[in-house]
Computed example of a mutant assay.
Amino acid sequence: MTTPRRRGMTEQAAQASIDQACRMLRLPTIRNQFPDLAETAARDQMSCLGFLAELLMAECDDRARRRSERRIKAAQFPRDKSLRAFDFDANPNVDPAVIHTLATCEWVDKGQPLCLIGDSGTGKSHLLIALGTEAAMKGHRVRYTLATKLVNELVEAADEKVLTKTIARYGRLDLLCIDELGYMELDRHGAELLFQVLTEREEKNSVAVASSESFSGWTRTFTDPRLCAAIVDRLTFGGNIIETGTDSYRLAQTRARAEA
């Protein structure tokens, strides 16, 4: 049975009804912003259609923001990093135009890989997290992990007979961000499992890695030459390679602050 609508409802009763309806319909943004938006609509002599559009757009915008926040949280980034906070002056090896082009995430849409290669402290992890965050904000499913952590997870999954399920979970991601590749040598078993994750993902999926080793130095991480060559090919074919150089990004920032 529907509740009859009453004409001539007082302003207090109308506000209470709006609050109750928003709770029932799960419209928290409209419920919270209605008084301010109503005041603005009255002051600007907004039409009923215009006022309704403002209410609905406010709800849609806030829902999009909350979805973006959930995707960023699900990515498990260890810290907040943004492209706006990256000091390009501190590392002239990094071309701002190239990075901002990558920030459009067209490479993620196409399933292309990305490699960030450079010495420790040159901003690789910052860029990896920042570009991953951009992808999450644009609606992509993203996950960040350290290379050693990923390999350990895969080894445990293989021991527990759930490797297929684990690889399938990573395969559902749009972008897998792997940091600190090359910091530790991986035994053949671990390297094979990593290769399996990289190659058994769907074509639409992207992989981004940050490594302090040049590609020639990856033979120290992946001791099997053929396996090393296959992984390098997977991470570079048709992709983007950003060399962040050898000069410490952090030291350059410290020197700039000291000279200021």
Rank of each mutant, 00 (worst) to 15 (best):
L128P: 09
K161L: 15
L154K: 12
P35H: 02
G171P: 02
A210S: 07
E213L: 14
T10Q: 01
A58Y: 00
T29K: 12
R220F: 08
A260N: 08
L37C: 11
D44S: 13
F86Q: 01
S216M: 06
R234C: 07
A229K: 11
P35F: 01
L114A: 04
L55G: 10
A75Y: 00
D119K: 11
K124I: 12
Q112P: 13
H140Y: 15
M1V: 10
S17P: 03
Q20F: 14
A210L: 01
I18L: 05
D44K: 13
G182C: 01
A103R: 12
A208M: 11
I117V: 07
T122K: 01
E54Q: 14
W107E: 11
A97L: 14
A85H: 10
N152C: 12
L173Q: 04
S214A: 07
S211A: 04
G182P: 03
T2R: 03
T244Y: 00
D179M: 08
E54L: 12
I129K: 00
L83H: 11
R220C: 03
A85P: 06
T40D: 07
Y183Q: 12
R188W: 03
R141S: 10
D44L: 13
Q45W: 04
I117M: 00
R172G: 07
F215A: 09
A90I: 15
G8C: 04
G139K: 02
G50T: 09
